[in-house]
Design a protein around this nucleic acid. Structure first.
Lengths: 128, 128
DNA sequence: CCCTTGCATAAGCATTGACTTATGGAAGGC
DNA sequence: GCCTTCCATAAGTCAATGCTTATGCAAGGG
């Protein structure tokens, strides 16, 4: 999930948005666009582009003395899947809880009271 | 998109995964789970939980002296939408490019040659 | 051929951020 | 009423990261 590490910066996110909307954009074009919204120098943007490249989120090809950048959808899709899976398991859990409630909770025969989910039972540090 | 800022840490991501799979988990339980995979202290995990709380990714309620944490799907869904939109615009662009190519490219009447997408045209710094 | 443009890298600095140990307070067991 | 457990916060350290200026190199234009 290196994509989510790379996405943790607003400038990089904006660069990706511009690439998604505008298609292929040269490094200079991306610098100009970034400087419309952030006060950053050309090297700063270039370094962000390097991070994006190393994360596989974009690719660059040389055309003359220009570097044309393209969005690479792979890592983005991976991140999206990760999020979707989280949400999936979560809603599944919600559903389970609902049906549990709908069933009238015939359990709770222990005279205590509603206890929380059990995975947190052992809180002592099991030193690895 | 503060969610993506918060998601830029592997420990926090893992905590969210555990919450998604296990439902509600106490702070101590999350500490124990984190310490199975990372060598982190209890305060470190507590600080991560604070970041997650402030980002709205989780919520906590007090039960006795325990703090029970719950996944909040809202920000996650928002991040997912952002990613999906990126991918959406991108594939749209890809499609447009394909149809353009399929059309045989009747344009290119200017004797020059294939030029790249135009948004990068002006590369001078327009100082804001 | 220079001279300019386009972009990347180097080096240095400042800030952020993740960790640590230490501590405190609130709730429960005895 | 203690003592323990659970968890959060405080304070300080260290590394990572994002920025800057300076520079270098490759490609075109005159």
């Amino acid at each position: 999930m290196t994509a989510l590490d790379v996405l943790g910066d607003p400038v990089r996110r904006r660069l990706l948005e511009h690439l998604a909307l505008g298609g292929e954009i040269s490094a200079g074009g991306l610098v100009a666009l970034a400087q419309e919204e952030f006060t950053v120098s050309q090297p700063a943007v270039s370094q962000h582009l390097r991070v994006l490249r190393e994360g596989g989120l974009v690719s660059a090809r040389a055309v003359g003395r220009r570097r044309i950048y393209t969005l690479e959808p792979g890592p983005l899709a991976e991140a999206e899947r990760w999020l979707a899976e989280l949400r999936g398991f979560w809603s599944q859990r919600l559903d389970a809880l609902e049906t549990e409630l709908a069933r009238g909770r015939r359990a709770a025969r222990t005279d205590d009271s509603t206890h929380e989910a059990d995975p947190a039972e052992d809180t002592t540090r099991r030193m690895a």
